[in-house]
Design a protein around this nucleic acid. Sequence first.
DNA 1: TGCGTCAGGTTTACCGGTAACGTAGCCTAA
DNA 2: TTAGGCTACGTTACCGGTAAACCTGACGCA
Lengths: 331, 331
Amino acid sequence: MKANLEDIAQAAGVSKMTVSRVLRGGTGFSDDTRDRVVKVAERLGYVPNKLAAAFGSYQASTLVGMCVPRLTSGLFAHVLDGVDRALSRLGYQLMIGANNHSMDEEEAWVRQIASWRPAGLILSGRNHTPATVELLRQVAAPVVEIWDLTTSPIDMSVGFSHYDCGAEMGQFLLRRGRRRAGYVGALARADVMGQARLEGFQAVLAQAGAPLVDREVLLDMPGFYAGYYGLETLLARTPGLDVVYFHNDDMAVGGLAYAAAKGIRVPEDLGIAGWGGMEAASILPKRLTTTVVPTTAIGKAAAEALVARLKGEPGQEVTVVPTRLVPGETG
Amino acid sequence: MKANLEDIAQAAGVSKMTVSRVLRGGTGFSDDTRDRVVKVAERLGYVPNKLAAAFGSYQASTLVGMCVPRLTSGLFAHVLDGVDRALSRLGYQLMIGANNHSMDEEEAWVRQIASWRPAGLILSGRNHTPATVELLRQVAAPVVEIWDLTTSPIDMSVGFSHYDCGAEMGQFLLRRGRRRAGYVGALARADVMGQARLEGFQAVLAQAGAPLVDREVLLDMPGFYAGYYGLETLLARTPGLDVVYFHNDDMAVGGLAYAAAKGIRVPEDLGIAGWGGMEAASILPKRLTTTVVPTTAIGKAAAEALVARLKGEPGQEVTVVPTRLVPGETG
DNA sequence: TGCGTCAGGTTTACCGGTAACGTAGCCTAA
DNA sequence: TTAGGCTACGTTACCGGTAAACCTGACGCA
């Protein structure tokens, strides 16, 4: 790099401390000095060194780390976008990572990110390894756990209850007269949040005397094909289901495609419900019954909670972001 | 943070330089010393300080910056995923940003990232402001331009030709007997790569004596609704089109929805073609005619080119990643 | 016996900022 | 008249690593 504070200081005839103060918009210098310093800095093409600043004073870090389960999830892409818009506007930089729904991968990521002494962290989910929690304690930076709500967060939490999402959908389908429900999931048991939805769903059905009849949980990624073939497998094994709840909308759309291919009428012969609120689902010939999650709002709220804490304000400890069950025409 | 190199050094009875060498896997110490140091480091819960390392020696940075047009694009999510998988495996950290298809926002992002002295950078597109180019020169880190191929990259390039994508689709539709083609785009003229596809498309049609009849370019984001209403506007203004080429698959699916809603038979009354290869499109009742882009492969190739350069190897200057026109049943 | 070599270290200097404190000159009020 | 305070700076120390130079004792060998 061409120039540092010292170079500017010499060219402007002041000390580098004064340059530092001017460029950070502090106080304690005359207008004349400011103008001279700013002009010289511009002329020399000064690029500040955040490495040095953050190293010299932990106050100065503008680094925020964020870990999501998968980068290819459309839902998390919107969360990421919400976080990025809120943070970049305030001069923070975002470091990302994916944990592939594994607490161990999350721990490895936190370990890496911790060595950058970030100003704050955003994690997905409420379950972490003990070593992760210990690392977070050592880093001593504000932490926001998003996506799955917890009433006892490490620090702050922004999200909603996956269990309640499943329970609400269960109630809705019962009200529509469904009595023989199935479930199609993915990622085996790795996605604990999808698992929580299933548990809420099951609990409500069982309580109503119409317990879940069968489930098919694939090892694959939760995409269209997994939904298509998952439904095929489920129906082959257990005929007579009157509704199927899917892990997410991608899979539900796959299920709809299977039904269409086999001449199964939806919702007459079979109800189909998803979760998440993918944009594509809203433009299907029949509107998908699903739970819409306010992804961007979650990202924004998480970023704002973090920034509040960084500014020394208390920051909301738990922020509940409401989901919305959209009845649709497939359930 | 609890412990630093000095603490370990004292506890292990060696100098901190020796600790540094041991922990980085260097040479010049006995097995006995290594074991002692490693054990002490573990006991003290040592978390290395990359800030200090990268600051003290520019060699040590493991930071890679990546800027994409939009974080919510499904295509770029896969590119990001490809990059992240390749880099995180090698111990690099990814800092991301979005430029919203604006060269000025890209410049602002590069300016921010430059102050972190990254080991390497990945940018999207081949067009940058002069100030951006100058900043990149100053940073002196390897740069990979992805997505749109350029034969004279700043440093390295991984991608394909958007112009050729458009041209190829034009040729394909002509072969299928289409003579009155329209185009529906979005983002106004901001997306220069979409613009390039349109230009390739137009050039081929004009050469065949069947020039583009009309186009509708919306200001919106290129999603389903933009495709739906874009097609509506286009057909209202210019009846008698026999095929419409869309900015991307999301929009094309919106167009299909509009056609279905209005009883327009596809492909008999109207052909529809997209671009990008969204996963959802492949499971529609009729397979979408589109160009599939190997997104993850682009991310992986970009990361590999970067890492090669960082290791001192020459690194592929231009990597062409082939796209694939999928005929489908809608064109 | 003297000397070169090598393993296995240590010492020193430095990266570029920022916090904390020091100070000269001037103004003001008791 | 002078203590005290304010403005506009300058000085010093420090953050935690890494590169490069330097040291030292043991050993091999002529």
